[in-house]
């Protein structure tokens, strides 16, 4: 497989504490990877190390097949939305993004054109020449997101990109990031698992400076191999329903009030499973809702 990022056994210490404790994580090219983990798990540290902002105490990084981060090699190919980092307050968004474009070796004309295009994309076309100081928190965040896509980099690292955005802008940015799927490699760190679920096709769980799991979203939430039936009461005879769907496994979760049916997607389609499960299930209880796969939040909390 072709990887955009291969990071192996990364170690980063702050005094006695290990922020990265042998973290190994590979991100395939053109994947949109969601990085999930509790506060202090090492997500931000990993991203900053990838972008060359932090110096590691151990491990190896291979970015876009060209070794560890080197501005001479990776400038314009990798961009980052860092967390808790202010833009220069007296700058104007159009000048700032043009300047960043020039640093990425775009021509002046190209840099300016891309800067206007990106600011238009984040709905800031009417604030091109306002100073950063005069922008609201959400607007600054949109400028920060826009700077990541100047010059169409191959790899974009986004640390909490949607935090601080109003619901309408958050939805717009989600759609914008989702449109990048298949064209660029994106790594998105967020505590909002609904956002991750909506935007990403891969997910990595990080805990205490280590990767706990790195796989496809489909595999984690079971979109193609699990149906969830939210029911009004616990079915009295689950085995009778199970007998109707050979090869599938049924279980009842009292906490969520759901019947979970795991099936082999190569053998049955969701429609076929529904056709077999619903009649005996409806005979025992009411069905409020049917969904394909679990929510990422439930899957994460289960891990």
């Amino acid at each position: 497989m072709d990887y955009a990022i291969e990071s192996t056994e990364l170690v980063k210490r702050y005094g006695a504490r290990r922020a990265l404790d042998g973290l190994t994580l590979a991100v395939p090219r053109y994947a949109v990877l969601g990085l999930i983990g509790p506060n202090g798990a090492g997500k931000t540290t990993w991203m900053m190390s990838i972008a060359g902002l932090l110096h590691l105490h151990g491990g190896t990084i291979n970015l876009l097949g060209c070794g560890p981060f080197d501005p001479a090699v990776h400038s314009g190919r990798i961009t980052l939305l860092p967390q808790d980092s202010e833009l220069p307050l007296e700058s104007r968004p159009i000048d700032l993004l043009t300047h960043y474009g020039l640093l990425q070796r775009l021509t002046r004309h190209e840099a300016k054109r891309t800067a206007i295009e990106m600011l238009r994309e984040v709905h800031l076309e009417d604030r091109l020449t306002a100073t950063v100081r005069s922008l609201s928190h959400g607007m600054r965040k949109r400028v920060m997101i826009a700077q990541c896509f100047i010059g169409s980099p191959e790899l974009v690292l986004l640390d909490e990109p949607l935090s601080g955005l109003d619901p309408r802008e958050a939805a717009h940015m989600r759609a914008f990031l989702t449109r990048r799927r298949g064209r660029q490699t994106l790594v998105i760190s967020s505590h909002n698992l609904n956002d991750i679920e909506a935007m990403c096709d891969r997910v990595a769980f990080i805990e205490k400076g280590r990767t706990v799991r790195n796989t496809t979203l489909d595999e984690i939430i079971g979109t193609s191999s699990m149906l969830l039936y939210r029911v009004t009461a616990e079915p009295s005879d689950l085995s009778a329903i199970g007998a109707a769907v050979p090869g599938a496994t049924l279980s009842f979760n009292a906490a969520t009030g759901t019947v979970c049916c795991r099936y082999d997607p190569n053998r049955d389609s969701p429609a076929q499973i529904n056709a077999r499960v619903l009649p005996p299930l409806l005979a025992q209880c009411g069905v409020i809702d049917i969904s394909r796969g679990d929510s990422l939040e439930a899957a994460y909390l289960r891990e």
Partner: peptide, 16 residues
């Protein structure tokens, strides 16, 4: 000032 505010982080992955 730029190191403290973090604005340097937008630059040094673009240039040395």
């Amino acid at each position: 000032e730029e190191i403290g505010s973090g604005s340097v982080r937008y630059v040094i992955f673009r240039t040395s």
